[in-house]
Amino acid sequence: MREITFVEAVNEALHEEMARDERVYIFGEDVRVGYGKGGPFGATNGLATRFGPERVIDTPISESAIAGTSVGAALWGMRPVAEIMFSDFLALAMDHIVNSAAKMRYAYAGEATVPVVFRMACGAGVGAALHHSQSPEAWITNVPGLKVVMPSTPADAKGLLKSAIRDDNPVVFFEHKFLYSRLREPVPEGEHLIPLGKADVKRSGEDLTIIAYGAMLQQAMRAADLLNQEGVKVEVLDPRTLVPLDRETILQSVKKTGKVIIVHEAPTFGGFGGEIAALIAEEAFYSLDAPIKRVGAPFTPVPASPILEKFYLPNAEKIVKAAKEIME
């Protein structure tokens, strides 16, 4: 199978869905030209040339209106793919994602659909500091009415984005910017759909489950390799969709291994890993033979200086350390 990068996979999904359904359109800052490649990362590359400026709309820098306008258009027959350039700016778009998109179907007693996707680049590792590096998934996983997706591989990014665009619910779709051009993997050409709400076991093992998503999947896989050298057979599980969460696959894995580490790049405290840990404690407590471990960032903003950012970020070594604590 041919290999493409994470951002090329995102771009391919957008091309295919726009070709498939003329109601799909792109709405965001700098999406048409960007710096000659479609946005700062090239996610919307070539779309304006192919589909025209009417369907690839450069907005003013107005995140609140990007979100609210998308909700309005989605209510009345369109299928917007809105782009919030950096997920840190989710904070500016939050009102319409949380108070409009998430609640309309409920408020209108099931009469309305809001088929909108809010794509955004998240994550650290590129020295972009406090306002361009956050992993804010836990800000919105507590909002009923939204689906929340965070793919970890190019193939998943393509398959999940295509499904998200076809979904009749509002979907918040996080793309980790560190992976965009750095991760190149096989991706199926043409129709490739991955259902929302379905986790994926990326590696099978019997001794320990590591649950990781976003850029942390790569670190979890590396940790699994390191632990394997010491005879620990690790199962690596990627939830892929955080809401709805694939509880069954998680519980199945933990019941098999009896040990679990949950990894994400956001601060551990108040992070989504706490929800996964609670699920396991409630539903699989008697299968556990060690405490649940979480590996995440410390409870601080993402600092700029490379030495500080490196300290901040979870990585394979920190996962291995946590593993050794519970494998004894």
């Binding site: 306002h131 600092p303 700029a304």
Partner: peptide, 11 residues
């Protein structure tokens, strides 16, 4: 640095 290295150019 002004932000002790935590902010960089933008802060």
């Amino acid at each position: 640095g002004y932000c002790r290295g935590k902010g960089g150019s933008m802060h």
